[in-house]
């Protein structure tokens, strides 16, 4: 279902890098990556996952997961925990804690606090833990400044350093607009996946490109880095990966 895309991104292993950042260009939808990663993490026994829903509701991930062949509801409140910011905002309106900041905390500070609480409750019982955040640009929309988002990501990166077997995966939409933040956040980790549109326009058999950058060895003087580019097509029940040149226009 999603094995090929995870293999291409190097995220198919049990132990993932500490910090992974997904950049999504304008007019491109990279939500399928979150669903693919979520499915992979849930299938590992005793691996905990925390999903922070900022762009889509939990229901979206449930439905997308069903298409990919896994049922998130089975894992909910067991190995899967959810911070559904959107649902909370819908339920409480403008008096939601994410909009009001009742404790004097900013939105990002509140989020870090909740993530830490979840981590404190669940991490000790799990062999590994993954925090998925979809997506950071919503924080900008809700009034967070660049510094606050940067600090938020720094806090998350610190969490990943503090704990073994903890992975933080962030996604940022409109990366071409928030370029500075995007680059700064990507620098916090060793893996960066860029979801890019096709430069040559719209093609029925390919949706876009994935550019995977991985830091292999960050030495004192030089940084060894690998770059891989693949094409992807999101189908109804799977995601297909093509190498550049593999697919052509059929006449």
């Amino acid at each position: 279902m999603a094995a090929s895309v995870l293999l291409a991104c190097g995220l198919n292993e049990q132990k993932l890098p500490g910090f992974v950042h997904i950049s999504e260009e304008s007019n491109v939808d990279g939500s399928f990556l979150i669903s693919c990663i979520l499915g992979q993490r849930l299938r590992i026994s005793n691996a905990g996952t925390l999903l922070v829903c900022l762009q889509h509701h939990y229901q979206h991930y449930f439905n997308a997961g069903m298409r990919l062949g896994y049922n998130t509801n089975i894992f909910l409140d067991k190995t899967l925990n959810v911070i559904d910011v959107l649902s909370d905002m819908a339920r409480h309106g403008l008096s939601s804690k994410w909009l009001r900041s009742p404790d004097g905390l900013t939105l990002t500070e509140q989020l870090v606090k909740d993530i830490r609480n979840q981590l404190a409750n669940n991490f000790p019982n799990r062999s590994s833990y993954t925090i998925l955040i979809d997506n950071l640009s919503i924080l900008f929309n809700l009034g967070a400044s660049k510094q606050q988002v940067q600090q938020f990501c720094l806090d998350l990166a610190d969490l990943a350093k503090e704990h073994d077997n903890l992975t933080v995966i962030t996604k940022l939409s409109n990366s071409d607009i928030h370029q500075l933040t995007d680059n700064n956040v990507a620098k916090l980790g060793h893996v960066r996946i860029q979801v890019l549109r096709l430069k040559s326009g719209v093609f029925r058999e390919v949706d876009g490109r994935l550019l995977i950058e991985r830091v292999l060895d960050e030495g004192s003087y030089a940084c060894e880095q690998s770059r891989k580019e693949v094409l992807y097509k999101v189908n109804d029940r799977n995601v297909k990966i093509f190498n550049p040149g593999e697919i052509g226009v059929k006449v």
Partner: peptide, 8 residues
């Protein structure tokens, strides 16, 4: 965009 599903 794909809402509550994978592909659009």
């Amino acid at each position: 965009s794909a809402i509550n599903t994978l592909a659009v």
